[in-house]
Amino acid sequence: MFRQSPARTLVLLATLAGLAVYASAGGYFAREIVVEIAILAILAISLDVVAGFGGMVSLAHGAMMGLSAYTYAIFSVKLGWPPLPSALMGIGASALFGTAIGWITGRTTGIFFIMATLAFGQMAYTVFFKWRWLGGDDGLGGLSRFDLGWLGIKMGDSLTFAFFALVMVLAVYAAAAWVLRTAFGRTLTGIHTNEDRMRALGVSTVVHRAQALGFSAMLAGVAGIIAAQHILYISPEMLVWTVSGEVLIVVILGGLGTLIGPLLGAVIFVLLKHEISAYTNHWHIVIGILLIATVLSGGRGIYGQVEHWLTRRTQPAGKTAEAPDA
């Protein structure tokens, strides 16, 4: 069961504050990195909701993000809608896509679910890759950011945009943490632990899983809007399955099922990528080895491992293992 422990709140706020300081103190490059982290973190948090708490390992989250970005582009660039309603359409499209995938794959689990999400994600990728009206494989430019001039906020400024992205991380985290602590989230964890029993208790698990994937896709859609407004250009590369694979790596490195771990994972992943890239072109091998090492060492990830140590300290081993017989 998800618990928003004080430690998690502390890590969340400290990480966001640290990133805000980094963006303020650093130059343009630091702000680009912060936005990149924010997009990846939102995507990873949204994936953790379904993978960590619902057992649904999706390889379609990149596609969900991309679908949101493209829908935003369709409404704002092609149809001339203002940015805010266009963004809502994008997020809505992504949520619908996620719900549909969840509904159709309702009874598939394990590797079949992973394959099915891969198929639907690649389907979306191929559609945008081939769709000339939206630029096909060249991508599409001419996007614009939210106009918050009436609030005195200049979104065109790189520092402002970095702050905006961080606020969205906080909002997405809060939404995810909220839902996981409601009846809906409790039931989702129940389905993850024992779907068969949850069904026998009267829960339509297929509907529940579809809604959970829809919610997760909605959050992924937020990442898509920020990504689209970040460099004001989108390309089908956002949707390709390896993007989803990277997001999964981030979740695993940070700590599956901890919600805060994915944020830390995103920070480490992006910083590592840029640090290693400064020395060598071969950052993939480092990430690959890190990933393998994480899984083989128990798969708890960074935050999961820390939490594991902390609980072992406060709760000496064996205390709960002996069960008094009734």
Binding site: V57, I111, I114, I287, G288, I289, L291, I292, V295
Partner: peptide, 15 residues
């Protein structure tokens, strides 16, 4: 489990 297998072999792709 499928997730660990997918992850490790995905890591191998990178390597």
């Amino acid at each position: 489990g499928p997730m660990n297998q997918v992850l490790v072999t995905f890591g191998l792709i990178f390597v």
